[in-house]
Design a protein around this nucleic acid. Structure first.
Lengths: 181, 181
DNA sequence: CCAACCATGTAAGTTGTTACATGATTAA
DNA sequence: TTAATCATGTAACAACTTACATGGTTGG
């Protein structure tokens, strides 16, 4: 068995906050959790069918023709609590940047420089994105209840991005002799 | 198409440092790159067969019966340079800890505390592991040439682990009211 | 009316893990 | 002699992405 899917955790989690269509679940994950989690439609729709047949969610016809709005059942809430209490199984590490850095000796300095530039601009991009997300969630349904948890999640991203920026500066100096561009 | 596999990058990278059997490649990745990369035998052996038939590596009989020792060809070195110069495609984010934190409102504080304890002890474990790896690589073949790159890789891990420890302290205070255990 | 978005779902293909099968060699 | 380690490989399966097919709705 490969590691167990956590798609149902994410889906039940979203539905524990508000009822939604499959499309909305995907958008909520992409917009708010996008830096920490990801689901594709190919995962979500089959997962919704399974969760419904297990009685963890129920559906009613949505506002638009052919759409369904899902809501969590009390069995679903119990199940979500179980799933969240399970230790977080880390996905096997595959950090493309560090793989490249490790074998950086085989790479012309210009390419290595580009790699570091890329990390830097991505980290800066993430930091500014977190600011926007923070502004966005304050207006979201359920912020009163969930705000501190959401803030903690964003904070983890900020600290990670900060560490990456520190690493870029250090590493440019160590491997490229800190050219002041 | 799913994202292209980077197994061949890792395998060529290891072989660019020293010739090895499939078993040794896997061990090298697990021991030295284990915090940043991962490969299983089920990936490595088919990959070696492909690389050999593409002329990027060649094999000769190994020391033990039935074993083969692989070495990189000059075409393989060229190919490695290409692969390393490609932008690092990040794997889709799936951070189980942050998924749980985000939905932490649905979780009893004791379980959330356990989650944070787990992150903390893992980060501390990583930090001490990096110390051991740093000691280990200094004795490794090729340290003269590759040392700075290897150190930079480890440094990234240390900074990330440090950021996680900061996060745990902050988050305990914010979500659990900083109980002085 | 047309583009963008909302909405669902499936099929094909890739990637990767795990378990299994097999056997040689080394150290206790 | 027995356990651990070295060594290779495959088969089954799980997870996930991407592309496709389909069509309704909204706003400019």
């Amino acid at each position: 068995m490969a590691r167990q899917s956590q798609t149902s955790t994410a889906v039940l989690g979203v539905l524990s906050i508000e009822s939604a269509t499959g499309y909305e679940i995907r958008r909520a994950i992409a917009e708010i959790l996008g830096h920490f989690w990801h689901e594709s439609f190919g995962q979500i729709y089959p997962c919704l069918a399974e969760l419904e047949s297990a009685g963890l969610i129920r559906s009613r016809p949505g506002e638009r023709a052919g759409s369904s709005r899902f809501e969590i059942t009390s069995a679903g809430r119990r199940r979500l609590r179980e799933l969240l209490a399970e230790p977080a199984t880390p996905q096997p590490p595959r950090n493309g940047t560090l793989l490249r850095t490790f074998f950086g000796h085989a790479l012309p300095p210009a390419d290595l420089g580009r790699l570091l530039d890329e990390v830097e601009s991505q980290a800066r991009g993430h930091l500014s994105a977190y600011g926007a997300i923070r502004d966005g969630i304050a207006a979201e349904d359920g912020y009163d209840e969930h705000g501190p948890y959401w803030e903690a999640t964003i904070r983890a991203g900020e600290l990670a991005a900060g560490a990456q920026l520190t690493w870029v500066v250090e590493t440019r100096a160590a491997l490229l002799g800190s050219p002041v561009s």
